[in-house]
């Protein structure tokens, strides 16, 4: 993984506050767990029916009945709980998740998120992503700033089918930390050695700049 991606993951981890209940989606968000220390007080939730997720285990140490929603073999910690899928999503829809971190194909300046379907190319189904995006109290996205072809993923409007409308609060990319505000995208922080001009060029919508110095991560 590139240094820029590792830094965005480490930066995103700093937005997890002590005491939160958090769901980490498949892809970059899963890596955030590596930045949460053994004594950090947080409850990780997975859609397939567990709270209190502990470290991922190597195959030789894995329990065949204990995976996260992405299929990784995980471990329990003192206080973990197992439950059925209806209970798991009741937790999501009733607002018990303080935060979810998700991947994205596109994010729009109005907070719309598209991360489950590219018509004609990729349509595996949304899994639990719709409920997470729509009902977690805070939704942040971890993504590369542009796609593999260099096209912006932060846009005025999504072109792909939505996962949920108006749901995204913050975006962590390999170039910047950007908040979704009523006025649109607002730049909060810059990745090391990235310039405002570069972020603007890689963003497919207006970018509001803060007054004064911009922190780096």
């Amino acid at each position: 993984m590139s240094d820029a991606k590792l830094r965005l993951i480490a930066r995103a981890a700093r937005d997890i506050a002590p005491g939160m209940t958090v769901n980490l989606g498949i892809g970059l968000p899963t890596q955030v767990v590596n930045h949460l220390g053994p004594d950090f007080p947080v409850c990780l939730h997975t859609e397939n029916g567990m709270t209190g997720i502990g470290p991922t285990l190597p195959f030789d140490a894995a329990d065949r009945n204990l995976i996260d929603a992405g299929g990784a073999y995980v471990s329990p910690i003192p206080g973990s709980a197992y439950f059925d899928s209806a209970t798991s999503f009741a937790m999501v829809r009733s607002g018990r998740l303080d935060l979810t971190m998700l991947g994205a194909f596109e994010v729009a300046e109005n907070g719309d998120l598209a991360n489950w379907k590219i018509p004609g190319k990729f349509s595996p189904g949304a899994g639990g992503g719709m409920e997470l995006a729509q009902k977690a109290r805070r939704v942040v996205v971890l993504t590369t700033h542009t796609d593999r072809a260099g096209n912006p993923k932060l846009l005025t409007r999504c072109t792909l089918p939505l996962t949920a409308a108006g749901c995204v609060d913050r975006i962590f990319t390999d170039m910047a930390v950007i908040d979704v505000t009523p006025a649109g995208f607002a730049l909060r922080e810059l990745a090391r050695s990235v310039t405002v001009a570069q972020v603007k060029k890689a963003t497919g919508a207006a970018l509001h700049l803060p007054e004064g110095d911009i922190p780096t991560f």
């Binding site: 859609e47 059925d84 899928s85 209806a86 798991s88 999503f89 009741a90 999501v92 829809r93 189904g125 949304a126 899994g127 639990g128 992503g129 719709m130 409920e131």
Partner: peptide
């Protein structure tokens, strides 16, 4: 037919 995961659970429940 694709369902949102929690909707599949709740429709079955």
């Amino acid at each position: 037919e694709f369902c949102a995961q929690g909707m599949l659970a709740e429709r079955i429940r």
